[in-house]
């Protein structure tokens, strides 16, 4: 009797949340899909059926090709950079040095700040001007006699996206550091001691014992950073504005929808983004939930 009451109560209590998520996530996704299959261009909604026209147009759209290339470059540099740097920082901090807390705070603090704020500063730091107008990091490198480091940052043809990724690494590597640090702390000390007694070098210990134990963490980091990089938007806007060489799908979507009033094309880009995130996330969610049971 009592049990039944509680069961109903629990369903009643959770249903507002479920309803909200159903409408605001899945309902809206469905709505977007419908728009992406329509002919809506201009101010007034137009749900005339257009089939896959918008998607096909995107596949042959040179701008969308640039977007895909940029996203791949950004994702590669950002994910690998954040994971490697985060891991190295975590290993260094794991040695039990004095002042660990201060360093940890310094590495983490960029995460607390909004992309809009940090983007403004990075825009200055990565100024690619040459000669007498040199400024930002280039000026710093130049005056430290590190000339070989001077480069054109985000205005480098094709690879400019990698420079944006550096700013993103700056902001997010503290996060991977924190993930790895938590992971390292969870590894029992005896394991390393035992390996040491067996005559393994420090490098071997990390290579053979610690890294494999950290695999779940690396996987988490990969997924979290990977899905973030597909959505990157405000950071690029704040550093470089809306410019084609640094275009990504999220910016194309915003511009074509709200500047160009190509609503159906914008919706199609949104849905393609969603599909790429889903390809990454759904297996991961399944894997994690299975691992729990």
């Amino acid at each position: 009797m009592n049990k039944n009451k509680d069961r109903y109560l629990s369903i009643i209590l959770i249903s507002p949340s479920i309803l909200a998520v159903l409408i605001f996530v899945y309902g809206f996704i469905g709505w977007s899909i419908r728009v992406s299959l329509s002919d809506w261009k201009g101010l007034n909604p137009n749900y005339t059926w257009a089939g896959s026209k918008n998607y096909l147009a995107l596949f042959s759209d040179p701008r969308f090709h640039v977007d895909i290339r940029n996203t791949l470059i950004f994702t590669g540099v950002f994910v690998i950079g954040s994971i490697v740097l985060g891991f190295i920082l975590a290993v260094m901090l794991d040695q039990g040095l004095k002042g660990e807390g201060i360093f940890r705070s310094i590495f983490l603090f960029p995460m607390a700040i909004s992309y809009i704020v940090t983007g403004v500063v990075w825009r200055w730091l990565m100024n690619p001007a040459e000669g007498s107008r040199m400024s930002g990091l280039n000026l710093l490198f130049d005056s430290l006699n590190l000339d070989f480091l001077v480069n054109r940052w985000h205005t480098t043809p094709i690879w400019g996206m990698a420079a944006i990724a550096i700013a993103a690494i700056w902001q997010m590597s503290g996060y991977t550091m924190a993930l790895y640090l938590a992971g390292l702390r969870a590894i029992p000390h005896e394991l390393r001691e035992a390996a040491r007694i067996d005559g393994a070098s420090e490098f071997q210990i990390y290579r053979r014992i610690i890294l494999p134990l950290l695999t779940p963490i690396s996987l988490s980091a990969l997924i979290i950073l990977g899905h973030m990089s597909l959505k990157v938007f405000d950071l690029i806007i704040a550093i470089a504005g809306k410019q084609l060489p640094l275009d990504v799908p999220a910016i194309y979507m915003w511009q074509t929808t709200f500047d160009g009033l190509f609503y159906s094309r914008g919706a199609a880009i949104g849905i393609l983004l969603l599909i790429s995130v889903a390809v990454l996330i759904i297996p991961y969610i399944r894997y994690t939930l299975k691992a729990e049971d």
Binding site: V25, Y26, F28, I29, W31, S32, A267, L274
Partner: peptide, 16 residues
């Protein structure tokens, strides 16, 4: 289903 909502790109729900 709720969990997946954490990862959706907002671009895919922006127009609605």
């Amino acid at each position: 289903l709720i969990l997946f909502g954490m990862f959706i790109p907002y671009q895919s729900i922006l127009i609605p």
